[in-house]
Design a protein around this nucleic acid. Structure first.
Lengths: 203, 203
DNA sequence: GATATATGTAAACATATGTATAGGTAGGAG
DNA sequence: CTCCTACCTATACATATGTTTACATATATC
C-alpha cells in the first residue's frame, strides 16, 4: 500500500473513528471543523489523495459517501443465529432468529448461511461443546466424514457424515453415543449444510 | 417493540440492505426511486414513523444520517488478530496485526481486547485446538482455574491458571503435558488476560 | 535554483438532500 | 358516519454538502 503522510493518516483515522461512532461518514465540513481548518479545500485535497492511494472509497456527487478500505475495516456480514432448533425447520423464519452475529465477509460468501446453537455433548471429541454456535453453509452434500447439520424428521443434529452405497451413517464424536444408521429408503433424512466454523463464548 | 406495517418493513429492510452494501445510508430520493414513488413526502412519512417507533436513528439536518437500530444491526467491533506470538509482546504493535475480526459489541466492552492464534494442542481437552483463535480480555488476575493467556519470559501461552499461596500452576488440558509450576520469586511470569471466546474455522 | 508536493486560506458555485405546504384516496375504529 | 392513520402526488423551499478557481507558504527533490 502506498505511503501516506502523517496528516493524511490523521484525517483517515478521524474518518474511521467517526464512522465507528456515528454509523455514517463525516462531511467535509465536519472534518474541517475537527481539525480547525478555515477552508474546505484542504480537506478535499486530503481526501483526494487518500482515494488515489486506495485508502478510501468515495461515491461521487453523493453526501457522506466515504468508505474506509482495509486497515481493519473489511466488510463484515451479520449472520442470523437460529435458536436451538429442536422443533424442526424452516430455520430462517423470523420468529426463530435469536440474534445476529458478525463474521468476516470471506467466511460468508454463500447466501443463506446461519448459526445454530449446538445441543448436547455428542461432538465433544471434535471440540464442539454444548452451547457452542456452529456456522452452517447450506449444501445438499458433504465430503465423507465432514461435520454436517442433518435434519432427521423434525430435528436438526450435528454429526460426522458418512455414506456407504445405500447406507448413511451419522457418527458422534463421543464414545457414549452410537452411530445413527439410515438407508436410502428412509425419506426423512436430509443434509442441511456443512459446519464451517465454531464460535464459543466462555464465562 | 411497536408494530410496523408491511410497507414500513419494506422501507426498513431496504435501508438496512443499502447500508450493508454501500457502508452509507440511502438518501430519501434513493428510497423514493427504489420504490418507484413520485414524491419524497411518502418516504419521509415512513421514516418519521420508523424513527417514532424506535427502528431508526436520525441525525437532523444531516445527509444520509440514518442508522438502523436493533433487528440484527447491532453494533459490531473489529478486534485485531495478533499472529502466533511466539516472540513475545508487545502484541498490539501494528506490525503484529494479521487481521481484524468482527464480534458483537457486547463481547468486546473492554478496551484493548485482541485475538490470539493458539499454537499446539495443549488445551485439546478444553476443546481448544491448534490454530483456534481465542479472544483475550486484558486483565492482571483471573479466577482459580480459568483459562488465561500467560506471558512467560518472551512467550505467550494459553493455560488454566491456579494460584496456591506463593505457588502458581499452569495446567494444560492434555495428559501429555505436565503442569508448569512457578513461584513468586520468578519475576518473568505475568497474566496477560482471560480467554473469553474461542473461534475456529473448519475446512 | 527550479520543480513538485503537501498543506493551507478565501470566496463562490452547483447540486444533493432534508423539509414543508397543500392536497388526495383508502381502510379501519369508534 | 366521522375520525384517524397509512400511504401517496405535486410543488416548492432552505440548506447541507461536494466542487472549483485563485492564491500562498513551507518542505523536499532533482
Amino acid at each position: 500500500m502506498r505511503k501516506i503522510t502523517d496528516r493524511q493518516k490523521q484525517v483517515l483515522d478521524y474518518i474511521s473513528d467517526f464512522i465507528d461512532e456515528h454509523a455514517y461518514a463525516p462531511s467535509i465540513r465536519d472534518i474541517q471543523n475537527h481539525f480547525g481548518l478555515k477552508s474546505t479545500k484542504g480537506v478535499k485535497d486530503h481526501i483526494d489523495r487518500l482515494v488515489e492511494k486506495g485508502y478510501l472509497n468515495r461515491a461521487e456527487g453523493t453526501a457522506r459517501a466515504l468508505e474506509v478500505i482495509g486497515n481493519g475495516r473489511k466488510a463484515s456480514r451479520k449472520i442470523p443465529l437460529v435458536g436451538t432448533v429442536a422443533a424442526g425447520l424452516p430455520l430462517l423464519a423470523e420468529e426463530n432468529i435469536e440474534d445476529y452475529i458478525p463474521v468476516t465477509a470471506d467466511m460468508a460468501r454463500t447466501e443463506g448461511m446461519f448459526f445454530l446453537r449446538v445441543n448436547g455433548d455428542s461432538m465433544i471429541n471434535a471440540a464442539i461443546l454444548d452451547g457452542d454456535l456452529v456456522l452452517v453453509r447450506p449444501q445438499p452434500f458433504v465430503e465423507q466424514g465432514e461435520i454436517a447439520v442433518v435434519r432427521i424428521g423434525d430435528e436438526a443434529t450435528v454429526k460426522r457424515f458418512f455414506r456407504f452405497n445405500t447406507r448413511v451413517e451419522l457418527l458422534s464424536e463421543n464414545p457414549d453415543y452410537k452411530p445413527i444408521v439410515y438407508y436410502d429408503d428412509d425419506e426423512d433424512i436430509r443434509i442441511v449444510g456443512k459446519v464451517t466454523a465454531v464460535y464459543r463464548t466462555l464465562e
